[in-house]
Amino acid sequence: MSELSFFLGCIAPNRYPGIEKATKIVMEELGVHLKELKGASCCPAPGVFRSFDKITWLALASRNVVLSEEMGVDLLTVCNGCFGSLVDANNQLKEDQDLRAEVNKILAEVGHEFKGTIRVRHIMEYLYDDVGVEKVKESIKYPVDLKIAVHYGCHLIKPSKERHLGSIENPTFFDELVEATGATSVMYKDKNACCGAGGGVRTSSLETALKLARAKIEHAQAAGVDCIVDACPFCHLQMDVGQTEIEKKFGDVFNMPIVHYSQLLGLGMGYTPQELGIDMNYVKNDEFIAKIEKIGGGN
């Protein structure tokens, strides 16, 4: 069985614990044991904290990476934002010896040292490259008969100089993993557009951020999907909590279910929406929950 450390970040454990739980369940089913990364902090969020002070961002990000180095395993994240921070920090410190020396001086004060011995992995690219689409397909006991709008998000694939995940204009790996569950990935307008949350925009200009989310959800709805599937708790929050805010600010009601890929996979493996926390979304859509309850045999 492969082992990885599980970097939780902020939003999964503190706003969508179902994503955390679903990830542990599905990875174990796939033969990947996730070890707790005890004492990890915020990644810290790439757009804001890196904007404020690069050395603080690097020191805190590398501390998280180092905790996994000390366990001797690669680190797994289920969040695009955390992936952005940790991959970029890990790569920069592996490549730039001066920067590494500067950061290590700070880490030494708290008893750590960055050595550059591990890789930072995102669940989607880990599943695609290391587990494989075929094995994911074999793990599905109950095909998920849903029409899905795939939301890649931004920092999973960009900046590509740090990622190497193929085309950033027309990526396909996420769609392949969604279709491995038996679902259909439906094309929709501006599929690769940003959800609007990143870069500190959700914090500083909520209304503007919501305009981007609204466009995203409108386009998905126009394509007739059952739900949007993402691989980032921050996009997840922006599109789920965002819908309650969009209703208040603009009056639009979508009732669009937002599902993390770990939760989708869990459905196909036979777990209930309640076990996976899908029913804990801020947008309540009973019709959707009733529909996905039938996937595992309809009891």
Binding site: G47, K158, C194, G198, G199, V201, S205
Partner: peptide, 12 residues
């Protein structure tokens, strides 16, 4: 200055 969501589309 703070409106960029850092989606990196332009950079790509």
């Amino acid at each position: 200055l703070w409106n960029c969501t850092t989606c990196y589309k332009c950079q790509e």
